[in-house]
């Protein structure tokens, strides 16, 4: 493994709040973390795990209760507010009141740490704003009002603002929370591209496990009273960490699909054949209480010959042929009830 210098680093970090009476409310302690340039890191955790507190601490909005965050090797507490505004740019979920300014003006606010007392924009500033608008894919709306943007476009505009700020680190609090499914993927793809092309260090919190597994270079799993789990999504899944972090009541993480499912007693069923058909057959079977496994003489065997040709072979009985997933499920259900009756007799 190559030795790279982390952009943000912390060891034994304790985060939380100082209450009015001077007591400390610890949200999480003993956090060890590292963030690297050119990577998108997704912070996952259930509500109350302390995601927002961690992001606020790393963004410099609140101080760590103990331990030190090192930003490019320098303690975060040693940064002045002006220096911090040049190091970390944020995109938050807060409602803004910027509807009455244009997208260009919104993005130009990102130049604030760089401009003088009256915020006058020089040619260099205007060039950077134009580039940021292009990089975020929102330049076609530059002269439109922020109020006229869709949620996805608004998120792009805020990302463009963070780009115009020219910070090496961008922290985003649930950037995909209010977006529809295409804007969600679009935003994640944009962030990945920015991390790659501009060598930005990007940290975002999200509840979207699937998108995080798909698009995140590195994941942080956060839960109360547990050390932060860091790693590539695949290593974390193969290491069984997802199952332990997202196991709650009847919900469990399925490492085979990378999805959260409501647990039901799953009976194994043999599944073979055309990969695409088999994949969706497995999806339908899972919903109905079956887990796709390797064929076995003692269980039902489903062989997908094609999209419209599925052969079901119950143990010790002649095979049946169906031509849709709906028929497959219906047939399996009837076989199952017959089996149940026979067992009762």
């Amino acid at each position: 493994m190559s030795e790279r210098t982390p952009v943000i680093e912390a060891a034994g970090l304790r985060i939380g709040y100082v209450l009015r009476n001077g007591k400390k409310k610890v949200v999480h302690s003993g956090l060890n973390l590292k963030l690297y340039a050119g990577e998108v890191t997704c912070l996952l955790g259930l509500n109350g795990a302390g995601k927002s507190t961690l992001l606020r601490t790393l963004g410099g909005f609140q101080q760590a209760l103990s331990g030190e965050v090192l930003l490019q090797g320098k303690p975060l507490s040693a940064f002045s507010q002006a220096e911090r505004s040049l190091a970390v740019g944020v995109v938050l979920t807060d409602r803004t009141h910027a509807g009455g300014i244009t997208v260009y003006e919104l993005v130009s606010l990102g130049r604030h740490p760089h401009t003088g007392f009256f915020g006058r924009l020089k040619k260099r500033d205007r060039d950077i704003i134009t580039h940021s608008l292009q990089a975020a894919g929102i330049s076609h709306k530059a002269s439109g009002y922020v109020a006229e943007l869709s949620d996805g476009e608004r998120q792009k505009a805020m990302i463009a603002k963070a780009l115009a700020q020219q910070c090496p680190i961008i922290i985003l609090d649930e950037p995909t929370a209010f977006l529809d499914v295409t804007s969600r993927i679009g935003t994640m793809a944009l962030l990945r591209r920015l991390a790659r092309e501009q060598q930005k260090t990007i940290l975002l919190s999200t509840h979207d496990i699937e998108a995080a597994i798909q698009m995140g270079d590195r994941l942080w799993l956060l839960e109360k009273e547990r050390p932060l789990a860091c790693g590539t999504p695949e290593d974390l899944i193969l290491g069984g960490l997802f199952e332990t972090f997202f196991h709650k009541d009847d919900i469990r993480f399925d490492p085979a699909t990378g999805k959260l499912t409501a647990t039901a007693p799953l009976t194994p069923i043999g599944l073979t054949g055309d990969p695409l058909t088999a994949h969706w057959a497995a999806n339908a079977l899972m919903r109905n209480g079956w887990r796709a496994s390797s064929p076995d003489d003692t269980r039902i065997h489903v062989n997908c010959l094609g999209k419209r040709q599925i052969v079901i072979t119950p143990p010790n009985r002649p095979p049946l042929c169906v031509n849709s997933i709906a028929d497959l499920i219906a047939t399996i259900e009837t076989l199952n009830t017959k089996d149940d009756k026979r067992n009762h007799l």
């Binding site: 909005f61 807060d94 409602r95 009141h97 910027a98 009455g100």
Partner: peptide, 12 residues
């Protein structure tokens, strides 16, 4: 206009 947190992040 962006709220206090954004403003603080912009160095205000």
């Amino acid at each position: 206009l962006l709220g206090e947190l954004y403003a603080a992040n912009l160095g205000v």
